[in-house]
Computed example of a mutant assay.
Amino acid sequence: MPLVVIGDPGVLARADEVVGTRLALRPIPSVDRAEHTPGTVDVIAGSDLPDDLPRGTLDARAGAAAFQYVRQGIRLPERRRTGAGDRTDQQRRPCAWPESPTPGTPSCWPICPAPPTTR
């Protein structure tokens, strides 16, 4: 299954050493640059934590970084809804059915699900 990780490349590399997965970490600037190559994890750098950050203990820097990873992940679909990203104008369309989250507005263009089918 293709995936992109948002995290700290250094922390991910140290975790890889600990568990011995031997995965290659490939830094990417955005999701649309992911290659999804087997044995490689595409990583969007969400922080640059220090190498000496202690493992297994609470640390405010790690907590703040984790918050930012989640926040950045939440904002990825938002970028696509607003047209920032790799979607073309032809792929954006207003939602026309009444059950859509925001009918007829640009905010739902790329994520608008197909209209419900009637039986």
Rank of each mutant, 00 (worst) to 15 (best):
A84K: 15
D32P: 04
G83H: 10
P38I: 05
A24D: 12
I111Y: 05
T21I: 05
R87A: 14
T37G: 02
T40F: 05
V18T: 14
D52F: 03
A84Q: 14
R81F: 10
R79M: 04
P29Y: 01
R81E: 10
P115H: 01
G20S: 11
P115E: 10
T82V: 07
T82L: 12
T105V: 01
I6G: 12
R119Y: 04
D59I: 01
T82F: 11
V5Q: 04
P38W: 04
W97N: 06
P115T: 06
V43M: 12
P2H: 01
R87H: 12
I44G: 01
T88S: 14
R55K: 07
G85A: 12
P110K: 10
G10S: 06
V31T: 14
Q72E: 13
P2L: 01
W109K: 06
R22K: 08
R93S: 13
L12E: 03
S107Q: 06
R71D: 05
I111N: 12
C108S: 09
G104D: 08
W97C: 06
L23K: 02
D59S: 15
P50Y: 09
P94F: 01
P77D: 11
E78I: 00
C112H: 00
A84L: 08
L23A: 06
I6D: 05
T40H: 04
P98M: 02
V5K: 09
V5C: 07
C95T: 03
G56V: 07
R61C: 03
L3D: 00
L58W: 14
P106S: 07
Q90P: 03
C108P: 01
A62I: 04
I111H: 14
E99L: 01
